[in-house]
């Protein structure tokens, strides 16, 4: 019987980030779809049910939550604990590249070896970094659409996106990432939890992971 040790992996701020991020995305995707294709059609004139205005309002509230979450993560990439800093997951150092290779082999059932870490493995880390960059693009395109007449956003937005329509197009296409990523993400979390009793899923609530005693 192996012995396990309790390790503190995630600060409370990171866990707060995770759930702000995940919950706001659920709202953003649902209301975003509605904005694209408002399928209810209020047929009674003067009913004042305001579905489109309400959906957009919810989209913007979720959008501010989402942006705040991304700001928290940016802070943690620089000032977080050892597992949270960006260097721990950037696939550039030899140590990290080796971890990426081993994780890929392990996840594709080719090898049983497993480069265990307290923080993210580099495959997961890279996907989180990609998600972070896409999230920034969602924020830029979103605020550009929200405040088209503000000089601050217009200056940026026109340079980056060209026009409102292109921003909207990019905003819409990138939305699909936030549906595809969670499918893989949640599956792999469950998969990992089945393979090794690290307590991975509970770690995103409690901040604590379990590791073999050396």
């Amino acid at each position: 019987m192996a012995t396990y040790e309790k390790h503190h992996a995630w600060s409370i701020l990171l866990r707060l980030f995770h759930w702000m991020f995940a919950l706001s995305i659920v709202f953003l995707v649902v209301t975003g779809f509605y904005i694209n294709n408002p399928w209810t059609n209020t047929m009674i004139e003067g009913s004042a049910s305001f579905p489109m205005a309400t959906m957009r309002f919810m989209h913007y509230i979720a959008a501010y939550t989402f942006s705040a979450a991304v700001a928290i993560r940016l802070f943690l990439y620089i000032f977080g604990n050892a597992q949270e800093r960006v260097w721990d997951i950037l696939p550039i150092s030899g140590r990290n590249l080796n971890n990426l290779k081993m994780t890929l082999l392990n996840y594709s059932y080719i090898s049983d070896e497993h480069d265990s870490r307290l923080g993210h493995n580099i495959m997961a880390g890279t996907s989180y970094l990609i998600t972070f960059v896409i999230a920034l693009t969602m924020i830029l395109s979103g605020f550009f659409m929200l405040y088209p007449e503000a000089t601050f956003w217009q200056g940026w937005g026109v340079k980056v996106f060209g026009s409102q329509q292109s921003a909207r197009f990019i905003h819409h296409i990138l939305m699909w990432w936030f549906m595809i990523f969670p499918v893989i993400h949640i599956y792999l979390c469950i998969w990992n939890d089945c393979k090794g009793p690290e307590g991975l899923i509970s770690s995103i609530f409690t901040g604590v992971k379990f590791k073999h005693k050396a």
């Binding site: 049910s49 579905p51 205005a53």
Partner: peptide
């Protein structure tokens, strides 16, 4: 009509 969700289909 937009805010009220009333659209030409």
């Amino acid at each position: 009509h937009f805010d009220e969700g009333r659209f030409v289909e």
